[in-house]
Design a protein around this nucleic acid. Structure first.
Lengths: 145, 145
DNA sequence: TCAAGGTCTTGACTCAGTCAAGATTTAGAC
DNA sequence: GTCTAAATCTTGACTGAGTCAAGACCTTGA
C-alpha cells in the first residue's frame, strides 16, 4: 500500500476521478460498510456525489479486484478493501457487527469434496453467524424455536 | 417423512391451513426455489394465494425449522426442505443452478478457529461459487479481471 | 355450533439497486 | 496550453424483493 491510490487505479486500467478516489478511501476507512455508508463517507470527504456514481465506482473496483463485495443474508451488500487473502466473516445476529476471520485451515477446506460434483469451483464464501461478546454480555441470546 | 404434513405442522405448534400445506409441498417439490417460484407452484396446486401469505408461511416454516432459507449474493432468497444436516451449497455463476454439497469435514471445519474471536457461533454458512459441468461444456467461463 | 384468536387478502410502501439520457470530466494528441 | 473522443457523472424514473397494516376470513377448542 505504498502506492498512491491514483497510481493503483491507473495500474489497473481504471480512469482516475475524484469520485473513485473518494470511494476507495471511504471503503478503506470503514470496512464492511454498505453502499449507503460509502455514499455518506464520500460526501463527508468531497462534498457531493450521486448515489449512482458510488454504485458505479464500487462496481468497477470490485471488478478490478481492488475491493471485495460481501452480501450477508438479510443485509445490503457490504464492501471492504482487504483482498487477496482467503478470509471469511463473522456476523453478530443481534447488532450486525462484522469481523474478519482467517480460515484456520489455510486453503478453503471443503473444496476437494465439493469438486466431486463436477463443478469448477473458484470461490468458497463462508459466513459465520452468532453473537458478539458485547451482545452476549448484555443478555442471553433469544432462544430460537 | 412418514408423518403427514398436517401433523408435522401441528407437532411444531403451527396452525394448519391449506396455504401452509401447499407452500410446504411446493418447497419440497422444487428445492432451492425462490419465493416467487413457490407462489407459482402453490397457485398451480390450490389455485390462488396471495404473495403475502406465501411470505408469511415461508417465514413461519423457517422459524420452526421445517424449511431452510438460503440467500446467495445477487439472488433473492431460496428455500429448501432439507434441514437438520449441515450441508452447503454450490452455485453456478453462469446459469444459477444450485446443488447441495455435504461438508467433507463433517462438522463445520472452521468453527474452532473462529471461536477465538469471542463470538458465540451458531451457524456456518458456506456457499461455493463456480461453473456447472453443462455450462463448462458449452464454452470456457469468461475470464474475470 | 360458536366465540376468540390466528391467518389471509388487498394494497400501499420501503429499501437496494439498475437503466437511460444528457452534461461534465479525463486522457492523450497536437 | 488547447482540443477532441471516450469515459464518467448527474438526474430522475424504474424494477424487484420484501414488509406493513387493516379488515375479512378461517381454525381451533369448548
Amino acid at each position: 500500500m505504498s502506492e498512491a491510490p491514483a497510481d493503483l487505479l491507473r495500474r489497473h486500467g481504471v480512469q482516475v476521478t475524484a469520485q473513485r478516489l473518494a470511494v476507495l478511501a471511504a471503503v478503506s476507512a470503514r470496512p464492511h460498510g454498505t453502499a449507503d455508508e460509502v455514499v455518506r463517507g464520500v460526501r463527508a470527504e468531497i462534498g457531493v456525489i450521486s448515489r449512482q456514481a458510488v454504485y458505479n465506482a464500487l462496481g468497477v473496483l470490485v471488478d478490478k479486484g481492488l475491493i471485495r463485495r460481501i452480501q450477508p443474508a438479510g443485509s445490503p451488500a457490504r464492501y471492504e478493501d482487504r483482498v487477496g487473502d482467503n478470509h471469511h466473516h463473522l456476523i453478530c445476529r443481534a447488532c450486525g457487527r462484522t469481523v474478519d476471520v482467517d480460515c484456520a485451515a489455510g486453503a478453503a477446506p471443503c473444496l476437494n469434496a465439493a469438486a466431486d460434483s463436477g463443478y469448477e469451483i473458484d470461490e468458497a464464501e463462508v459466513i459465520f453467524w452468532g453473537h458478539c461478546p458485547e451482545c452476549l454480555a448484555q443478555g442471553p441470546p433469544p432462544v430460537e424455536g
